[in-house]
Computed example of a mutant assay.
Amino acid sequence: MKKSLPYLVAFSAILVLGACNNGDDNGGGDGEAGGDEPEFMNLLTGGTGGTYYPLGGEIANVLGDATETSIDAQSSNASADNLASLRSNEAEIAFTQTDVMSNAIEGINSFDEPIENISAIGSLYPETIQIVTTADSGIETVEDLEGQAVSVGAPGSGTYVNAEQILEVSGLTMDDINAQHLSFDESTSGLQDGNIDAAFITAGTPTGAVEGLSATNDIAIVSMSDESINNLVDQYPYYAAYTIESGTYAGLDEEVNTVAVYAMLAVTNNLSEDLVYELTKALYERTDEISHEKSNEILLETAQEGIGFDIHPGAQRYYDEQE
């Protein structure tokens, strides 16, 4: 049976009106593939003494320029707290660690329940777990941390989980140390003042806070044993063995054997495929516009390192085109 012309016109009008009502509340329209394209976005980084904050400011400028979006890089308590903020839609993009992202999606360790509205853009660079102390502390192994005042990272940070897992494979727990929950800057100040004996710092090397400490104090970085590294990697595959080269910091005259995870960018799933495609493309193709030294390690070849969870469809489309 044929439909009358007035019926078809009315039906078409309903479809058009429905499409017009799908805009988001932030003033942005929907992308062609659906989803939000806000005019303003927040990029959560980390503490001012780490790598996330200065690098995040430059990445925000590049991504904002590429997408004509105003992106504000904000300091934060880093990885775990950043993902909690994405869950509550307080931000759209965030730095985190691959291990913390995995924990968030599973709802373990720092997370009481799974976070279901996040996915990955891609990995950035290796994040080195550095156990920093002073040269005269007498601390030479992870086991030597027993009974010592040790900073294990700001509350909600991925550093805390790293510290807990490294202590575990070395036969210790948080109860065996005097755990202090300090930021990177507070940790290095505590070492300088003698208020703590050692600090776990998970960040790209060289780390600004550690560089500052090495300029005023003789420092040491604790090496992990081969056995501990192998046990850690076997139990938690998102870790990889990593060597801190001699000379990375003033007075560091020997290589340090430790482990690393990857820093990465996460996004909320409600961002449109087209927008995240453009963000991903800019991130890996415009690193020459980022003056931070870590830009040399942001590579398409390692963009999916350590990522065993969902990649945003926009980012995946970009990766598929590069194959």
Rank of each mutant, 00 (worst) to 15 (best):
A250N: 15
A241G: 07
N217I: 14
G57H: 12
M224W: 00
L55H: 06
A149Y: 12
S75N: 06
N117C: 08
A260D: 01
A13C: 10
D99Q: 07
P313D: 07
Q74P: 01
T69S: 15
A135Q: 14
Y7A: 14
A154H: 13
E211Q: 09
V169N: 03
G18L: 09
E285V: 12
A163E: 04
D185F: 11
T188F: 10
D65F: 13
L213R: 13
L63Q: 11
N269K: 15
L124N: 03
Y160S: 15
I93K: 06
I115P: 01
G27C: 13
Q130H: 03
S291N: 12
S187N: 10
R286E: 14
K281E: 14
S88H: 05
G35E: 02
Q322L: 15
N117I: 07
G147Q: 06
A209M: 08
V161W: 05
M41T: 10
A19W: 15
R317S: 05
S123M: 08
T258S: 03
N269D: 15
S157G: 14
G35L: 02
D24R: 10
I108G: 00
D176A: 09
E255P: 02
L283V: 11
N195M: 09
E58R: 10
I229S: 02
N296F: 15
G31Q: 14
L299V: 08
A80G: 11
E140W: 01
N178P: 04
A13S: 13
G308K: 00
L265I: 15
E254P: 00
N89G: 01
L124Q: 04
G251Q: 08
M101N: 00
T216G: 02
S70P: 05
T67Q: 12
Y318K: 03
S157R: 08
L167M: 10
T69D: 14
V259E: 04
V267L: 12
T159Q: 11
I229H: 02
G138M: 05
G56L: 06
E297K: 12
E211R: 05
N103I: 01
D112H: 00
A179W: 09
G247S: 05
A149R: 14
A198C: 03
D176G: 05
S88F: 02
G147F: 07
I177D: 06
R87L: 05
P38V: 07
S76P: 09
T128E: 07
V259S: 04
I244Y: 12
Y284K: 07
S189I: 12
D193K: 13
